[in-house]
């Protein structure tokens, strides 16, 4: 499910420190709520991937890829 443009994905991929901005973005798109936003910041990237998979925003394959390759892979998945 595309929730961002390729340009936005590129912008995230070029960030030095993306976690807060990406959480804020997902919340602004109502993909996650405030509780999940907080949960991700407390637990880290794996929680973000888990949550996006639970919500079927990304597939199991994309989730695995994100855990293998990191957030760049994830944000381009979010732009598909």
């Amino acid at each position: 499910m595309a929730i961002m443009t390729k340009a936005q994905a590129k912008n995230f991929a070029e960030m030095d420190d993306f976690m807060l901005e990406l959480c804020d973005f997902l919340k602004s798109k109502s993909v996650i709520d405030a509780t999940t936003h907080r949960s991700i910041l407390l637990k880290g990237f794996s929680r973000m991937v888990e949550c996006l998979q639970e919500k079927k925003v990304i597939s199991a394959r994309e989730a695995k890829e994100a855990m293998d390759k990191g957030f760049t892979s994830l944000v381009y998945s979010l732009a598909k």
Binding site: D16, D17, M19, L41, F45, M48, A66, D68, F71, L74
Partner: peptide
Amino acid sequence: PGLNTRILGDERPNKPVTTVGKPYMVYY
């Protein structure tokens, strides 16, 4: 291997002399 990705979503913060991922790393 994979630890920085699991927590920070990125292996680049493995390098000490970089700002990449460090604010969130320190917070976490």
